[in-house]
Design a protein around this nucleic acid. Structure first.
Length: 299
DNA sequence: CTTGGGTCCTGTGCGC
DNA sequence: TGCGCACAGGACCCAA
């Protein structure tokens, strides 16, 4: 579920409390998630200062003061909780796998330190935790094969079209390929194609020229609006339960099977053209995954 | 090279 | 009310 907008919202929430602070304690409750976590991870993290929180695609990056980068991926069920408390006072919950405690130096003069914990909870354990030198980040598993950042100015229709050239796979499947463009998952693939008016079944190779420009613009728009929705629906990006990055969003087509199309109104009684009815939002399965789209509006 | 299918994992929600 | 099962999905892995 966490795609680029959710991960970006998490990044912003973490940045407020982690940047500039020192890691004072790390508890690790299992040796692996999807892959083995780094050896001696807690020892290698404690004492480090977090310089900046970054993001690449769906990967969270914590730049540390020793030149290493802590790489986090939330998989599909990964969650991060942020709480103002000491780790010693936290009651560990089911599926909590890694907890990082950070504190400031007590610079406010009160003598007491401001302490926060970040809890990595992942029921399905599809997540990933790595610790790599900053200059080797591009070789890191998962990050090495990432395509362009869709919100970077360099991501244009021409770039997208070039990446899609020669691909016979459906455009929906191509958008899920992180090598084509980084950060898009099932939800935003569906939403972007809807906004661009492109059928998810269309061959990726035919998405070139003006059509690729339209899709690139739709991707940028959908992601940007989702990030804005995340920021505005959360207080300091943190919900009352401390959870970061999950928020309600009014999807146009995702999980809307059988409902009227918000674009052309097909599937509702007031639909024009063919009279009442029309297909409305359909659900099909591509590559074993649900795709939601409007057969009338998307060609 | 591309492409498709299997796999990991567990909570949720549905049908009977 | 309870049980069983399909489903959800990110990304790696391998076979064709």
């Amino acid at each position: 579920m966490p795609e680029l907008p959710e991960v970006e919202t998490v990044r912003r929430g973490l940045a407020v409390r982690m940047e500039g602070r020192r890691i004072s304690r790390v508890d690790q409750y299992r040796p692996d998630l999807r892959f083995a976590m780094p050896e001696r991870l807690p020892q290698r993290l404690v004492g480090r200062r977090v310089l900046a929180m970054g993001r690449r695609g769906k990967y969270l990056l914590a730049n540390l003061d020793d030149g290493q980068v802590l790489v986090l991926h939330l998989g599909m069920s990964g969650r991060l909780l942020l709480r103002q408390q000491r780790l010693a006072d936290y009651r560990v919950g089911t599926h909590d796998h890694l907890i990082i405690e950070v504190e400031d130096g007590g610079e406010d003069g009160s003598g007491s330190k401001d302490t926060w914990i970040v809890v990595f909870n992942d029921a399905r354990r599809f997540g990933q935790v790595d610790l790599v030198p900053a200059d080797a980040l591009e070789q890191c598993r998962g990050i090495a094969a990432l395509g362009p950042e869709p919100l970077d100015p360099s991501f244009t229709g021409a770039v997208l079209g070039a990446a899609l050239a020669g691909r016979r796979t459906p455009i929906k499947a191509a958008l899920l390929d992180q090598q084509i463009v980084a950060g898009i998952g099932n939800i935003y693939a569906c939403e972007s194609l809807f906004r661009a008016g492109i059928s998810p079944r269309r061959s990726a190779a035919t998405v070139v020229g003006a059509r690729a420009e339209r899709l690139a613009g739709a991707i940028r728009g959908v992601l940007t609006e989702a990030i804005a929705a995340g920021g505005s629906s959360l207080r300091d990006y943190v919900q009352t339960d401390g959870e970061l990055g999950y928020f309600q969003h009014a999807w146009a087509v995702y999980d809307k099977e059988g409902q009227p199309c918000p674009g052309c109104s097909c599937g509702s009684d007031s639909a024009g053209l063919g009279g009442p009815g029309g297909p409305g939002i359909r659900r099909i399965v591509q590559g074993g995954r649900s795709t939601f789209y409007c057969p009338w509006r998307q060609r």
